[in-house]
Design a protein around this nucleic acid. Structure first.
Length: 553
DNA sequence: AAACTAAGCAACCGCCAAACA
DNA sequence: ATGTTTGGCGGTTGCTTAGTT
């Protein structure tokens, strides 16, 4: 039997309680139960633990509400159960997670999402709470470091437990495990490995977030009217938020008259769709008019999105962002780091986080750390509304995070220019940097890829690369403001242009990050794009390149 | 040395579903 | 069939500690 744990008592219990032998005396923070007895809240004392342990020895687990009756313990049944389950029950494993456990957690989370209890079932001696805390801490750490939540080489295999769900439409999205979703509608997905997504990984994993306004504002303002292909409205939030980490590219059509920028913000469905059109080899419907199982799956796939989702809730009215606060809130800030922080900080970020390096776009749009950028976005949005023209409305635009830059035809380069981007890491206007160091990508009006003409999956990657450049940008000889997009085009496109573009990209990075950092990128081997994305030009296994902090102590 | 910040952890809360009356 | 109780789960909060400025 586990003795009375007492590290927590020493640490958590207010000093005036530690020596208290009477658990009845302290009623601080308590509440009355049915019998008007004050139920204590807060940290458990050793005395309380002893009572609870004694009770369980005699009566066994369960019937937790009876604990109070039988023992006089002023704790509600829930609290007793929790205390027992998380701290007092025998065979609990204490201490830090082993590397094996950590790996297992990562894999389980990739499969299950935030199903802590289910994950705990795979980790004997570990509690759901422990796993949850670990994961949240891990997320925090990795997001701060700009790292993807999952190592790219992690395998996401369909587990038997995921066979339960047969029809995604029967369930709220939030309840679905990624693979469950993938299996919806009898859509069989073979073992999924991250390698399948490597081509997108760099940009997917850390492609940035919407601006802060994204989730809440999007939902508050638009969700209600969205034709959103998810059964659970809250899934919009999840998708939006998940997609923050995702996708370099959107492929929406501007059917509702929203400006491009608005589309980006308010039309997540397009975003999601395009996301999955990017190159998932099993997507049976790359054109994406219907929501494929994959589409429904991936947005919430922790594995694929490097995001997490949580339970659903109504979105009408006040939107409660359900993700653990730490799971997303810092993403923006990190993403922005490269742009907003000092060069050194940016450098650290880039060194630590190759994926982040390919998502400069996000950095460029996140307002989290920049009032200016927030203003920029706001203005862009305003302009977007003001500038809306019939032609704009009719154009079938691909909305990408990068395209956000074009907010209603105004490239972010231009916008940054307007603001003179005082926070550019190198003291230069980010826009000028982009303009100068990002190459024009041949290409493509967004109209080249109307929704109905979305290329087959084999082409999607290329499409993605092309779409990141906007008509405006190309026409003006202005490069897209998205190095990640650029990267995508460079890495994902084949042919002689690749080397050239890559070189240009490296130069752009050099400008942005300083030559030293750029050297890291110049080491990028001339490998197939997917390899490059996978390894980010560093070790072939990006997981191995993660900072020690991210490899877990 | 003090103030501040981040990390880690324990516990609570609200919701949900199953069991029971 | 309906209402209540109970247990479980996931998200969030708040506290302590450790590290940094």
């Amino acid at each position: 039997m586990n003795g009375v744990p007492n590290e927590s008592d020493r640490r958590m219990v207010p000093k005036d309680e530690i020596d208290s032998t009477s658990i009845e005396e302290d009623s601080s923070g308590g509440s009355l139960n049915g019998g008007n007895q004050v139920l204590k809240k807060g940290p458990w004392t050793s005395a309380e633990d002893a009572i609870l342990i004694d009770y369980v020895k005699k009566h066994g687990e369960g019937n937790w509400n009876a604990v109070q009756k039988h023992t006089g313990l002023s704790r509600c049944g829930k609290s007793c159960r929790l205390r027992w389950a998380n701290h007092l029950r025998p065979n609990l494993k204490k201490g830090a997670f082993t590397p094996e456990e950590e790996q297992l957690i990562i894999e389980l989370h990739a499969k299950m999402g935030n199903k802590w209890a289910r994950m705990a079932a795979h980790l004997p001696g570990r509690t759901d709470n422990e796993i949850k805390n670990y994961w949240n801490t891990r997320i925090k750490r990795r997001q701060r470091a700009g790292l993807p939540l999952y190592p790219p080489n992690i395998n996401f295999q369909v587990s038997d437990e995921n066979q339960q769900s047969k029809n995604v439409n029967e369930y709220s999205y939030s309840d679905k495990q990624p693979n469950e979703l993938m299996q919806g509608s009898n859509f069989d997905i073979p073992d999924i490995t991250f390698e399948n997504f490597n081509a997108n990984y760099g940009s997917l994993s850390y492609a940035p977030p919407f601006p802060d306004i994204a989730a809440s504002n999007m939902l508050n303002q638009r969700i209600g009217s969205l034709h959103y292909p998810f059964t659970n409205p809250m899934s919009c939030v999840k998708h939006l938020r998940d997609s923050e980490n995702l996708i370099p590219d959107l492929h929406g059509t501007d059917s509702d008259g929203l400006s491009t920028y608005e589309h980006f913000l308010f039309k997540p469905s397009g975003k999601i769709k395009q996301t999955f059109g990017l190159g998932y080899p099993y997507d049976p419907d790359p054109n994406g008019e219907s929501l494929t199982p994959l589409e429904s799956a991936v947005p919430g796939s922790h594995a694929l999105l490097n995001g997490t989702f949580s339970a659903s809730s109504p979105i009408d009215g006040t939107v409660k962002l359900e993700l653990p606060s730490l799971q997303y809130t810092e993403t923006d800030g990190n993403s922005w780091l490269a742009c907003s922080s000092t060069p050194l900080e940016a450098a650290d970020t880039y060194i630590e986080s190759p994926p982040t390096t390919v998502s400069l776009q996000s950095e460029c749009i996140s307002p989290r750390n920049s009032g200016l950028l927030e203003a920029l976005l706001h203005e862009a949005q305003t302009l977007g509304s003001a500038k809306k023209k019939p032609s704009d409305k009719s154009s079938s635009s691909t909305i990408t995070p990068g395209n956000v830059a074009e907010c209603s035809g105004v490239s972010i380069s231009e916008k940054l220019e307007e603001y003179n981007d005082p926070i550019s890491p190198l003291g230069r206007s980010a826009s000028s940097v982009f303009n100068e160091y990002t190459p024009p990508i041949s290409g493509s009006s967004l109209d080249e890829f109307p929704h109905s003409m979305a290329p087959s999956t084999s082409d999607n990657i290329l499409v993605t690369a092309k779409h990141v450049s906007s008509p405006n940008v190309v026409d003006k000889g202005i490069s897209p403001c998205r190095p990640d997009a650029l990267l995508g085009s460079v890495w994902l496109d084949d042919g002689s242009q690749s080397a050239k573009d890559q070189s240009v990209f490296n130069d752009a990075i050099a400008i942005l990050l300083g030559q030293d950092l750029c050297n890291e990128y110049k080491h990028l081997p001339s490998e197939p794009p997917s390899m490059l994305v996978q390894g980010f030009g560093l070790d072939s296994d990006p997981w191995n390149n993660m900072p020690s902090a991210c490899q877990m102590p």
